[in-house]
Computed example of a mutant assay.
Amino acid sequence: MINKIKFTLNFEEVEIETSAVRRLLDVLRDDFKLQGVKEGCGEGECGACAVLMNGDIVHSCMVPIGQVEGKEIITIEGMQRTQKYSVLKESFEDAGAVQCGFCTPGMIIATEALLRKYPKPTDEQIREGISGNLCRCTGYNMIIDAVRIASQRGDGLW
C-alpha cells in the first residue's frame, strides 16, 4: 500500500508517496539522495545511519517512514547549514577525531543531540551520548576530546 507521508527534512517541508514500512534510511538515501546517512549494520547498533528526529537521535535503519509523518528530520546535510556544524566539524578536526570519515556524520549527529541535552557534559555524559556509535579508526578518546572542545567553543549555541 502506498501512503503520502509529509514531514520536515533539513528545514524544508517534504512529501513522499511510498510504502509506510520502508526504512527512513532507504528513503533518505534513495529518494532524497542524502548520502551522509549510511548503512552500517542495519540493526541500530553502529550509528552510521543516525539522524535527529524532533531533536532526538534515532537510527534511521530502524525507523519505518510511516513513523516520520509530521516530524522534523535533520541529517548531516541539514546540520551543515547551521553554525553548530562549523563548531562541531572544527572540533572533530582539531582533536584528530576524523580518519576514514564513515562514522563521522553519525558522531556529529550524536554530539549535537548530546549538547542539546547537556551543553557542558561530563566525560561520563559524553561517553553515554556517543555510545550508540561505533568507530574503528580514531578510537574514542579523540572523539571524547572533540565533544569536550565543541562544548567549550559552542558556548551559548546549545
Rank of each mutant, 00 (worst) to 15 (best):
I2D: 07
I2C: 00
N3Q: 09
K4T: 11
K4F: 03
I5E: 03
K6M: 05
F7Y: 03
T8H: 10
T8M: 04
T8D: 09
L9C: 14
E13T: 09
E13W: 00
V14W: 09
E15P: 04
T18Y: 02
A20D: 03
V21K: 14
V21S: 13
V21E: 13
R22G: 00
R22N: 10
R23D: 00
R23Y: 02
L24A: 06
L24Q: 05
L24S: 04
L25V: 06
V27G: 05
L28P: 08
R29Q: 13
R29L: 09
D31C: 08
F32S: 07
K33S: 13
L34K: 06
Q35L: 15
G36W: 07
G36I: 11
K38T: 05
G40N: 04
C41H: 13
C41Y: 11
E43I: 14
G44R: 05
G44V: 04
E45F: 08
G47S: 09
A50H: 06
N54E: 04
H59R: 09
H59Y: 14
S60H: 06
S60D: 05
C61G: 03
C61M: 01
V63K: 01
Q67Y: 10
V68Y: 03
E69G: 03
E69F: 05
K71N: 12
I73M: 04
I73D: 03
T75D: 07
I76E: 03
I76G: 02
G78N: 08
G78Y: 12
M79F: 13
T82N: 07
Q83N: 13
Y85Q: 02
K89R: 10
E90P: 02
F92M: 14
F92H: 13
E93P: 00
E93V: 15
E93C: 09
D94P: 01
D94Y: 11
A95Q: 09
A95M: 10
A97M: 10
V98Q: 09
G101K: 11
G101P: 12
F102D: 12
F102R: 12
C103S: 10
G106P: 11
M107F: 15
I108R: 06
I108W: 08
I109G: 01
A110K: 03
T111Q: 09
L115R: 06
K117W: 05
P119I: 03
K120F: 06
K120G: 02
T122S: 15
T122V: 01
D123M: 07
D123R: 15
E124K: 14
Q125E: 15
I130Q: 12
I130Y: 14
S131I: 05
G132M: 08
L134D: 02
C135K: 09
Y140V: 06
I143N: 10
I144W: 10
I144E: 14
D145K: 15
V147I: 13
V147E: 04
S151G: 04
Q152H: 08
D155P: 00
G156L: 05
G156S: 13
W158E: 04
